[in-house]
């Protein structure tokens, strides 16, 4: 019922506005079209000016409102460079934005038609054209140069000492694989995937796989100041590893391996203090449409303050092999795993 009433109301408003429109047309004819035209023109010119001023005010308000929430402090080294470049581009585009919009609205007001005014016949001026072709061209060249330097930095080879982690997208969550203590990610094959006991299709004939750890809740652990390189893959459709706080992003494409690397410079704990949000957590968002659960494909990144904290967390993880072969595994094998972890500790 309320639906019908609101539709009726909207229809009524339409009819009223339409009638006003028609009435103003008739009134215009009665009062003399030329006179009305002149008046309307003046009113519109004022409205445009008002629009521009209100627009600027709105823009300022909007900035105030979102100040703290956009481009919040960058959590990676690459992101700091990113922000610098962003601000420069913002400056360049901002100047052009204000200059051109102001000219557009000011000319509209200044040169509104009046009875006395005649237009100035001014078909072209090659000098002006050359000037405003060259200046944008130079500005673009500068932006390209800065951009490409940053781009090649970001996409360069990761440092040798980078921590290597594999992250694989599937509908609709992230699987994170750590290389275990051998530091090597073993081979995997999509034909060996089984949701029951081999979610990434690890090849058990490859010894490197035996100690690999798979974190299934999409938690990516890394260490403050230590570069981390992500090996990115997908099990089914295209996903995308979006790391808003680190200003990084890369598609996860089935059949293709992609990578990205960055160096975290703000730990999770520190970020909680900075944002004043005790629930703060770095999030991994899927940024490529991947199906109905796209919006829920959430992972998290924990940046540990120290290597020791990270190692302590790692110690509590069980290798994927042992976790899925538990029921079949005899007692000795379990023991073996235990001794392994002890060994790691003594080695450190």
């Amino acid at each position: 019922m309320s639906g019908f009433i609101s539709i009726a109301l909207v229809a009524l408003v339409f009819i009223i506005i339409y009638q006003i429109g028609k009435a103003s047309e008739y009134a215009g004819v009665l009062r003399g079209e030329e006179k009305v035209k002149v008046q309307t023109n003046r009113t519109i010119a004022w409205l445009l000016l008002a629009f521009f001023i209100l627009g600027l005010y709105g823009l300022w308000e909007c900035n105030e409102m979102f100040k703290g929430r956009v481009l919040n402090i960058s959590a990676s080294e690459q992101g700091i460079e990113y922000d610098r470049m962003f601000n420069l581009t913002l400056l360049v585009t901002g100047v052009v934005f204000f200059a051109t919009q102001a000219a557009l609205f000011w000319f509209a007001f200044k040169y509104q038609s009046t009875e006395k005014r005649t237009s100035f016949f001014y078909p072209h001026n090659n000098k002006l054209e050359i000037i405003w072709t060259t200046i944008p061209a130079i500005a673009m060249a500068i932006l390209v140069a800065i951009g490409l330097r940053a781009w090649f930095n970001m996409t360069s080879e990761a440092p040798k000492d980078a921590q290597v982690v594999e992250i694989v997208g599937k509908q609709f969550n992230w699987l994170v694989r750590y290389p275990g203590r051998d530091g090597v990610l073993g081979k995997r094959d999509f034909r060996k995937i089984s949701d029951a006991d081999n979610i990434l299709g690890l090849d058990w004939t490859d010894k490197d796989n035996m100690d690999d750890v798979i974190v299934q809740n999409g938690e990516l652990h890394c260490v403050l100041g230590k570069p981390i390189k992500l090996i990115i893959g997908s099990r089914d459709v295209i996903h995308d590893v979006g790391l808003a706080h680190f200003r990084m992003k890369m598609d996860a494409v089935p059949g293709i391996v992609t990578t990205l690397w960055f160096t975290p410079v703000v730990s999770t704990e520190k970020m909680k203090q900075i944002t004043g949000n005790p629930n703060f957590v770095y999030e991994i968002s899927c940024d490529q449409m991947c199906g109905k659960g796209h919006y829920s494909m959430r992972g998290t990144i924990i940046v540990h303050e120290t290597q020791a904290q990270y190692d302590a967390w790692m110690l509590m993880q069980q290798s994927y092999y042992s976790s899925v072969h538990k029921p079949a595994a005899p007692e000795e094998q379990k023991k073996e795993v235990k001794t392994d972890t002890v060994k790691v500790v003594t080695m450190k």
Binding site: T40, N41, I44, A45, L48, A103, L104, F107, A108, Y111, Q112, S113, T114, R117, T118, S119, F120, Y122
Partner: peptide
């Protein structure tokens, strides 16, 4: 638009 005779 500059120095025109603008009709809105």
């Amino acid at each position: 638009m500059w120095r025109g005779n603008l009709r809105f």
